[in-house]
Amino acid sequence: MQRETLFWLGLMLVGGVLLGGRAILVGNGRQYVERVTTTADVAATEGAAAQAVELTDYVNIPARERDAPGVRVSFARTVGIWVAAFCTLGIMSFLLGETPPYKLVESVFVGVSAAYWMVVGFWSEIVQNLLSHLVPGLMRATLLPGLSEKTVPNYWYVVPLVLSVMMLWRLAPKGAWIARWPLAFFIGATAGIRLVSYLEADFVQQISSTILPLVVFGADGSFDVWASIKNTLIVSGVLLGLVYFFFSVPHKGVVGGLAKGGVWLLMITFGASFGYTVMGRIALLADRLEFLFDDWLWLIDPTLQRAGM
């Protein structure tokens, strides 16, 4: 065995023993829950009298209240915390290269996310929008009891049903061209929606917001220097940026100079966007580290979950 492999193996073993010991002695990574029972009344229906049904929910309880009556360790949620910690470390192991733990959790991520978005699409679109319009009676009796009694079958929804079947045809070995019809609908709808919405929200609205007074007076009638400079910079900045994007005229002479100013402005924008993106990612990283050190290892306690323990 190579010296490097031996070193990492030893390090992981020591880490595992320390973690296990800490989990036994301190009890870190445990999630406590409390069982909450409520009663809901069920109205009388034909052939069934009114009744009260007991509903059970489990709510998370901070570890500092673990000795309170009715509070117990949730096995599923505790396992969840350890699994989430393994997944977090697995993804972070990519910093050392494409390690087996990374490849394992990456595979899990691909499978879970694909299935999750399929489930979301099924319940929120296919059931909620397609089936509720095609067979409202059946949906009201089974999956959507809250569906309005006024909802009647709308057979126009056979069209998206047919288009859906045509789209799934792509999985068939022959006749893949059939999937072009729903794809064309998709592309056409996207183009139609985007054309209007972008022109309204991103073109007209942005121009409207840029038409600002260049000389600003305060409420008391005095000249507001800073607001005037700010508005002038915004208006001239937008114009300079647009000059840079205007390629119908060669960027030479005066236009070239203005375009140069536009480039400088865009560089400031990209620099600010870059700074913001980095800060956003670092915030996410801090969140994951907080999960590891707070929820899992119980080494820090920023929200006082374990105060007094």
Binding site: W117, G121, F122, M167, L168, F185, A189
Partner: peptide, 10 residues
């Protein structure tokens, strides 16, 4: 319809 087809795309 667009949203339904998007769900089918999933």
């Amino acid at each position: 319809w667009f949203n339904i087809l998007a769900a089918i795309a999933f």
